[in-house]
Write a protein that binds this DNA or RNA. Sequence first.
DNA 1: ATCAGTGCAAAAAGTTTGCACGTGC
DNA 2: GCACGTGCAAACTTTTTGCACTGAT
Lengths: 171, 171
Amino acid sequence: MHDRRHHPIGTDVETLMGQFHAYLEKKQLKSTRQRDLIAQKFFSTDGHMSIEELLHLSRSENPRIGYATVYRTLKLLTECGLAALRRFGDGQTMYETAGDTEHHDHLICIECQHVLEFQNDDIEREQERVARSFGFNLVRHRLELYGLCPRARGIKGGWCPADEAALRKGD
Amino acid sequence: MHDRRHHPIGTDVETLMGQFHAYLEKKQLKSTRQRDLIAQKFFSTDGHMSIEELLHLSRSENPRIGYATVYRTLKLLTECGLAALRRFGDGQTMYETAGDTEHHDHLICIECQHVLEFQNDDIEREQERVARSFGFNLVRHRLELYGLCPRARGIKGGWCPADEAALRKGD
DNA sequence: ATCAGTGCAAAAAGTTTGCACGTGC
DNA sequence: GCACGTGCAAACTTTTTGCACTGAT
């Protein structure tokens, strides 16, 4: 019930769980109830999640989950490339579902704080060119655009496209 | 002696100090020895600086400078747009000289950790277009490219353009 | 049965704040 | 002289770690 994803890039929860388990196995680590629950919750929400959000989500199903376990699990997910740390300008620390990490950038409304994802091939291409021009091999990038959404700008009937994403967290 | 800047965009230290003083005056704040020293050191190093680096630099001239004063001064500088907070992926928190904040992006070597600045108008233009296409008014952005510099890639005689910037900190 | 994982609480790291004293204006 | 600034230490916040106990293989 938590697997409604809105962007086409996303891999489904099951696949991601599979990759996670594969990683655990490879590293001879154990697959536990807590890890599964946390990973499940994490994969089921797209966009971005704070540690605290993830803790609360997980506790809603198992109230005894501790902070440390969430941190530790998120570290594992990051190691195997299924999660990525993201620190936005104002200091909020968030994690995002990866696997598709390379493939989207962020558009953030500085009024609503909501985050929208987008992709633009022209920009990607140009980035490659810039990196090459310095002799670099581009491994990954991060692009964040900060601005005002239609609503924040006071446009009548203006609406923030990012609201949609934020609302979805409520389900 | 600390004002060697390498990129053409930068305003010189004196001008920046002037802007800082103007801001203090406007806000009816006082210009003190400590604030001046810290701002001076900050403006004199380009690229990025951590709180700790700035503290040490300042203490080398006045050992009694405290952490709190550095934090407070950096907050002032940020308020008036002369400094900008930057949180890189791995968690290092840095400040950078602004005024030219809007005008450059970052190319980071994931091996050396050094940071190189660049500008690309095509990318900027495309960013504007993307924002507009979502109905956003673009206020600012942040672009970071992570990759491997020539040296890190093991190219013979390969050198990391970012080294230059890092070396300059030593003066 | 074994050894890694968990939960808790304590510790560490990073940042902010309260307060007595100092200092620009 | 007064109000704001400073330095120090304490408080907070966020993340990590140590340890006794639990649980997956």
